[in-house]
Design a binder for these strands. Structure first.
Lengths: 173, 173
DNA sequence: AGAACCTAGGTGATATGTCAACTATTCCGT
DNA sequence: ACGGAATAGTTGACATATCACCTAGGTTCT
C-alpha cells in the first residue's frame, strides 16, 4: 500500500445512474482534489521509502517502529501498546518485528506480570541504525513537504488531517 | 504501502546530534502535522479498501485501473499510458492486470502498430463490476473526507497537494 | 474449583508491491 | 543495411500487508 484510492469518479458518474439521489457524486473541484490526494498518498511514502533504503537499509515501517521504541521509556513497549501507537494491526506488527528481530534491530522480552504478553525492545544496533538514518530522512521530509508550504498552509493541512482523522476514528472505533 | 512514514522525528532529534546545521529538524507544529499525515495516509486508503471489498470484490487498485480504462476511448489503453496515468511502475501494472485478467475484469490485446506493445481493455464483467461498486465507494469517500470539510478547507487541501506534487515531480522527473 | 469467556499475541495462506534482470522490437547513426 | 542503443512489456525473487484462525494464559461468575 500501499493502496491508493478511487482514481477518478468521473467514470463512476458516467457508469452508474447519476440520478441516484442516495449517492451524490463528487463535483469537479472535489474530484480534482481527490485525485491529487491519491497521487500524493501513493507517491510521497514511496519516495520517502526509496530515499531511506538508499541511504540506510531501513524501510519506512522499520523507521516508524524504531521511532516509537526509542521514544519510549527504556526503549521497549508492549506489543499492543506499540500497535496502538502506530495504528497497525497486531498481526502486521507481529510479522514485522519478527523480520526486524532477525536483522537484529529489535528483540522480544517476556513479560513477567502477564505471561501472555511480550515486550519489544530496541537493540543497540537498532538505535545505531535510526540515528544513522534520521538526519537524511528528516531532510527529505522537509524538502518534499515543509519547504514547499507556508505557515498558513501547514496549519490548513493540519486542520484537514484532524477532520479526516476524526471521521476515521468514528468509523473504526 | 502501504507504507507510512516517519512516525515521529522527536526520537531522531534526541538520537542524532541536534546541533547538526545541515539537518534542521521539524518544529512542534510541523511534527504534529506530519504525524497526522502519516495516520491519514495509512488509514484512509485502508478504510476505503475494506469498504470496497466488503461490498464488491474489487480492491482499491482494481477500482483505480477500471476507472482509467472506462474513462478512455473504447475502454482500452496502452500499458505505458495506463501506467503513467496511474503513476504506477510498469512492473506493478503488469502484475496487477495479470491478476485482474485471471478474474475476467480486463483482457490484453496485441498492438498492430507496434509489435512490442499491448492494450489493456475492460471487459463487460469489468464494467459491470465498477458500476456496481462505484455508488457505495463514492458515498464512503464523501462521508470520510468531503462531508467533513468546508469549501475553504477543500481548496486549502488542494493547494497543499499541488505543492507537494510539484516537489515530487521535481524529484522523480 | 471449574466452565465460559476474554485478552495477548502468533501463524500460515494469500494478495500485493518492488527491484533487478530479461526478451522482443524498434530506432538511429553511419 | 546493420550494429548498438533505446523502448515496451514481462518475469521471478523477495518484502510486505491482510485475513482468518490458532494457542496460551487470565478473568469472572457461580
Amino acid at each position: 500500500m500501499t493502496p491508493s484510492a478511487a482514481g477518478a469518479d468521473a467514470a463512476a458518474v458516467d457508469a452508474a445512474d447519476a440520478a441516484d439521489a442516495d449517492a451524490p457524486w463528487l463535483d469537479d473541484r472535489e474530484q480534482a482534489v481527490w485525485r491529487q490526494w491519491i497521487q500524493v498518498s501513493g507517491r510521497l511514502p514511496a519516495a520517502l521509502h526509496r530515499d531511506l533504503q538508499r541511504s540506510s537499509d531501513l524501510s519506512l515501517p522499520d523507521f516508524d517502529v524504531l521511532v516509537r521504541l526509542t521514544e519510549s521509556d527504556e526503549g521497549r513497549m508492549r506489543v499492543s501498546a506499540l500497535a496502538t501507537s502506530l495504528q497497525w494491526e497486531r498481526s502486521r506488527l507481529s510479522h514485522h518485528v519478527g523480520r526486524m528481530g532477525r536483522r537484529g534491530l529489535v528483540e522480544r522480552e517476556d513479560c513477567v506480570d502477564d505471561a501472555r504478553g511480550a515486550f519489544i525492545a530496541v537493540t543497540e544496533a537498532g538505535r545505531a541504525a535510526i540515528e544513522r538514518a534520521a538526519p537524511d530522512h528528516v531532510r527529505t521530509v522537509r524538502s518534499l513537504v515543509f519547504d514547499a508550504l507556508s505557515e498558513d498552509e501547514v496549519a490548513a493541512f493540519g486542520a484537514v488531517m484532524t477532520r479526516i482523522l476524526s471521521r476515521l476514528d468514528a468509523v473504526e472505533g
